[in-house]
């Protein structure tokens, strides 16, 4: 055993050292889900049951939410327009943009978020599915209709505001995800691999990348069959897809005493329980990851605020 232990430790170190970035050049499966990115779903005003413990919560206005998360293709198009118009700037290998800053309260773990330019996306990051070539942004081949990831809260917020929309509040996001009957997942109370993209859920991308998998095209879990992988139609009561799994989604709220921003929905990296609609994740607004994306909401014209 005295010989085995050092060998095992050495193996672990080799493993750590060998963990390079995911190999590029792998052919990414492509599927047409038939769901149109950029479509909107109406969420009518009214009470709903919020959180794990089903607190009655009122949202007294109608609003619309994107049926699927913002895709890489949509974000690339935005970058081309926003950069031309000066809404965002390129600073070396970063896309940055102005943010007016948050009030700082000096709580124990609070970090100041000052006025100024903040990171939106880090160009050249191996997990960014957007490429910048010849002065143009475009989606990486095979990832055009996958959710935009590796985007900071600032970058998500800027996208929505550029088009006159906004990030959803946590309340808006959760109501759109679960409707009014207090269900645990957008489609009901039970989860199976046919409902959503989560860890070890067996989707075709896990065949390529292993149980950790990858993002799936937006609206993938709509009842279609993809190369023998049968999905169930897993929209929320308002017809919104991908509200559980695939990518975490940034929400709008800025809370007193913390610099963290909150995400909802779970991602392809989570176990199934992490996809329950009240489950939250949080990180600083300049955090970005391959499992974090977003979608926008907009007010309904003519609706009373």
């Amino acid at each position: 055993m005295r010989r085995v232990f050092p060998l095992l430790m050495a193996a672990l170190l080799v493993l750590i050292a060998g963990c390079a970035s995911r190999a590029t050049g792998v052919e990414v499966p492509t599927f047409d889900t038939g769901i149109e990115p950029g479509d909107w779903a109406l969420v009518p005003a009214g009470e709903f049951l919020m959180g794990q413990h089903l607190h009655e919560t009122m949202i007294d206005y109608d609003y619309e939410i994107m049926v699927v998360p913002v895709t890489n293709a949509m974000y690339a198009e935005y970058l081309n327009e926003a950069l031309d118009e000066g809404a965002v700037e390129m600073d070396g290998d970063q896309i940055v943009g102005y943010y007016p800053g948050d009030e700082f309260h000096g709580y124990k773990h609070e970090l100041p978020i000052d006025e100024g330019n903040w990171l939106h996306i880090q160009l050249g990051d191996p997990y960014l599915r957007i490429v910048y070539e010849g002065g143009e942004f475009s989606a990486l081949e095979g990832y055009a209709d996958h959710p935009m990831v590796n985007v900071t809260w600032f970058g998500a917020r800027a996208y929505c505001e550029y088009y006159g929309w906004r990030l959803p509040t946590e309340e808006e996001w959760e109501k759109a995800a679960r409707g009014t009957d207090g269900r645990a997942y957008p489609w009901g109370n039970d989860i199976s691999p046919a409902n959503a993209n989560y860890y070890n859920s067996g989707d075709p991308f896990e065949d390529v990348f292993g149980p950790l998998g990858d993002t799936t095209p937006v609206g993938f879990y709509n009842g279609n069959e993809y190369d023998g992988f049968q999905t169930e139609d897993s929209a929320s009561p308002y017809g919104v897809y991908d509200m559980a799994g695939n990518v975490w989604e940034w929400t709008a709220n800025v809370y007193e005493g913390t610099h963290y921003r909150y995400m909802r929905g779970g991602s392809f990296r989570n176990y199934d329980y992490g996809l329950r609609v009240w489950w939250r994740n949080s990180a600083g607004p300049d955090f970005y990851a391959p499992s974090v994306g977003f979608r926008c909401v907009r007010d309904v014209e003519g609706a009373e605020e």
Binding site: I16, C19, Y127, F209, P290
Partner: peptide, 10 residues
Amino acid sequence: FVDELSEQAF
């Protein structure tokens, strides 16, 4: 030690 998508082997 390792980033999000490279963590599988780790």
